[in-house]
Simulated assay, not measured.
Amino acid sequence: MNLSICKQRQKIAVDVDAVCRLIAATQLPSGEIPWSTGDKTDPWDHVEAAMGLTVGGYLEQARRAFIWLRSMQLADGSWFAAYRRGIPEDRTRETNMSAYIAVGVFHYWLITGDRHFLESMWDTVRRAIDFTVSHQRTNGEICWAISPQGKVDPMALLTGSSSIYMSLKCAMAIADELGMATIPWADAYKRLGDAICNRPYLFNMTKSRFSMDWFYPVLCGAVTGEMAGGRIKRQWKKYVVEDLGVRCVSDQPWVTVAESSELVLTLAAMGDMEKALIIFNWLSDHVFDDGSFWCGFTFPDMTRWPEEKITWTNAVVLLAADALFHLTPGGRLFSHAWWAENGHPG
């Protein structure tokens, strides 16, 4: 494949403004960004949607999204797992969902250099990370959730813990920029990374059917170098459907745009731009008439499912495009080389 031609094609194929218009149109006046019009909102996907807006230059809308999240933070630093128009719908408190605000805030900072925004969000990030780290266990894994009744579920999830690893990395980078101490986080970060890399038995293995359990340890930067390459290669055929994209679950005929885009991010983070570009190219036909992307489709019948236009799916397409085409300084967010070169953890 001629990579320069592929790159040019994708710059045309992805309408950044159309994708951002979809996200912005779905956003509520409060700043909350549901999955789709009339749907629920969860903290992790809300942050992802805000990151997409930031890539597209919709900075006012992105700031409103972060301010809404700040206003909804609970006393212990967490958020509920789901809201609908600001009303809690699921009062579970997930560690992964709560920590992810650090990634969104750092991403906004990378793109805008807005120090006032960074300072205004610091206390929110600090409290969220403290909540998450407080649920780390002796071997380094982090319990995934606290039930509505207040009971800690001791189960640890590999995808969720990998996301927390990325959140900790971004939180420490924010703290470093603002001159704040993060020694307790550094220890938690090190122990979590060791668990992800060396103790797979600590995590719920029933989730290994999901492609995110395959690539998230690499995407977050816990697994790098030859180990990352080997991990991706070993299970490539299990999850990747040639010329279509990435299965959400290994034993189901359902390809999703979000997982495919996240694999693009993962490959770009490793520096394998050739494979990343090829997979990104597969997504270009899966768009609505307004330029926004499908959520997913079944194969071989190629039935679009579900029909909703999902905000966070569209956002991660923009993150993948940014990693490939360097649309903004945020395109380096997941790059293993960038984190290593800039003296940050990872």
Results as ranks from 00 to 15, higher is better:
Ile5Phe: 10
Cys6Ala: 14
Ile12Met: 07
Ile12Thr: 13
Ala13Trp: 09
Asp15Trp: 04
Asp17Gln: 14
Val19Cys: 13
Arg21Lys: 15
Leu22Asp: 07
Ile23Asp: 09
Ala25Arg: 13
Thr26His: 05
Leu28Pro: 01
Glu32Lys: 05
Ile33Val: 15
Gly38Thr: 01
Asp42Val: 04
Val47Phe: 13
Ala49Cys: 04
Gly57Phe: 07
Ala62Ser: 15
Arg64Ser: 14
Arg64Cys: 11
Ala65Val: 04
Phe66Met: 10
Arg70Ala: 11
Met72Arg: 15
Ala75Trp: 06
Asp76Glu: 13
Gly77Ile: 05
Ser78Asp: 12
Ala81Leu: 12
Pro88Gly: 14
Arg91Trp: 13
Thr95Trp: 00
Asn96Arg: 08
Ala99Val: 06
Ala99Phe: 07
Trp109Leu: 08
Leu110Gly: 07
Leu110His: 09
Gly113Val: 08
Asp114Ser: 10
Met121Pro: 08
Trp122Lys: 02
Asp123Cys: 06
Val125His: 04
Arg126Trp: 12
Arg127Phe: 00
Ala128Trp: 11
Ile129Lys: 00
Ser134Trp: 04
Gly140Ile: 01
Cys143Gly: 10
Cys143Asp: 08
Trp144Ala: 11
Ala145Arg: 12
Pro148Trp: 11
Pro148Asn: 12
Gln149Ile: 03
Gln149Thr: 15
Lys151Gln: 13
Val152Ser: 08
Met155Lys: 12
Leu157Asn: 09
Leu157Cys: 03
Ser167Gln: 06
Leu168Trp: 05
Lys169Asp: 01
Met172Val: 12
Met172Lys: 03
Ala173Cys: 06
Ala173Ile: 00
Leu178His: 12
Ala181Thr: 15
Thr182Asp: 05
Pro184Thr: 07
Pro184Ile: 05
Trp185Thr: 04
Lys190Glu: 14
Arg191Ile: 00
Pro200Gln: 11
Phe203Val: 04
Asn204Lys: 02
Met205Phe: 01
Ser208Phe: 11
Phe210Cys: 04
Phe210Ser: 04
Tyr216Trp: 06
Tyr216Ile: 00
Pro217Arg: 07
Val218Phe: 11
Val218Gln: 07
Cys220Ser: 15
Val223Arg: 12
Gly225Ala: 08
Gly225Glu: 05
Gly225Gln: 07
Glu226Gln: 05
Ala228Val: 02
Arg231Phe: 00
Arg234Gly: 00
Gln235His: 07
Trp236Arg: 13
Lys237Pro: 00
Asp243Phe: 01
Val246Phe: 14
Cys248Leu: 12
Ser250Arg: 15
Pro253Asp: 13
Pro253Lys: 10
Thr256His: 02
Thr256Lys: 01
Thr256Trp: 04
Val264Gln: 10
Leu265Pro: 02
Leu265Ser: 08
Thr266Met: 12
Met270Gln: 10
Asp272Lys: 03
Asp272Ser: 09
Glu274Asp: 14
Ile279Ala: 01
Ile279Arg: 01
Ser284Pro: 00
Asp290Gln: 07
Phe293Asp: 01
Gly296Asp: 02
Phe297Val: 03
Pro300Cys: 11
Lys309Leu: 00
Lys309Arg: 15
Trp312Thr: 01
Asn314Pro: 01
Ala315Val: 09
Ala315Gly: 04
Leu319Ala: 03
Pro329Val: 13
Gly331Asp: 12
Arg332His: 10
Leu333Ser: 03
Trp339Leu: 03
